[in-house]
Amino acid sequence: MTIHVRLQQLIDALDISVLEFARQLGERRGEKVYHILHGRLKPRYDTLEKIVAVYPQVNADWLLRGEGLMFKQLGSPSAAMNTEERLRNMEFLLFQLNERMALLQETNDLLRVEVARLRESR
């Protein structure tokens, strides 16, 4: 999953508009964020740094590399996040699992085709 997809998921999870997200990062207009979301620009380090500063609950490992949960767990998991954040994290984890399953299925299908081709060539 690319960073622009993760940013869109974050904006959706925060339940704010792209323009509001951009303004929270100190942008007057949402143009730069729109370009990032559509893959025309990659976010610069200072933009990522602002996101983590403005939204300290965001897991930087997830934002940068797609690893872990979207939101941090501070202290005990039950005290760290409210129910809505836990549900968003669970939805995100299910989304990740579905993506991985689709990729595994695609790989499996390609391997089956290759095995069939090798059997036919004998």
Rank of each mutant, 00 (worst) to 15 (best):
Asp15His: 08
Ile16Lys: 01
Val18Gly: 08
Glu20Met: 10
Glu20Ile: 08
Ala22Met: 02
Arg28Asp: 10
Gly30Met: 04
Gly30Trp: 01
Lys32Cys: 05
Ile36Gln: 02
Ile36Asn: 00
His38Lys: 11
His38Phe: 04
Arg40Leu: 08
Leu41Arg: 13
Leu41Val: 00
Pro43Thr: 09
Pro43Lys: 08
Arg44Met: 03
Tyr45Asp: 12
Tyr45Thr: 14
Asp46Cys: 04
Thr47Gln: 07
Leu48Arg: 11
Leu48Trp: 08
Lys50Asn: 15
Lys50Thr: 10
Ile51Ser: 09
Val52Cys: 14
Ala53Cys: 12
Pro56Ile: 06
Pro56Val: 13
Gln57Met: 14
Gln57Asp: 14
Val58Asn: 04
Val58Cys: 06
Asn59Met: 07
Trp62Ile: 00
Leu63Met: 05
Leu63Ala: 08
Leu64Phe: 08
Gly66Phe: 02
Gly66Asp: 00
Glu67Pro: 04
Leu69Asp: 15
Phe71Thr: 03
Gln73Pro: 00
Gly75Phe: 07
Pro77Val: 10
Pro77Ser: 14
Ala80Tyr: 03
Met81Pro: 00
Thr83Ala: 13
Thr83Asp: 13
Glu85Leu: 09
Glu85Pro: 00
Glu85Thr: 03
Leu87Tyr: 05
Leu87Trp: 03
Leu87Glu: 11
Asn89Asp: 14
Glu91Thr: 09
Phe92Tyr: 12
Leu97Tyr: 06
Glu99Thr: 09
Leu103Val: 03
Gln105Lys: 12
Glu106Met: 04
Leu110Lys: 15
Val113Arg: 05
Arg117Tyr: 00
Arg119Cys: 01
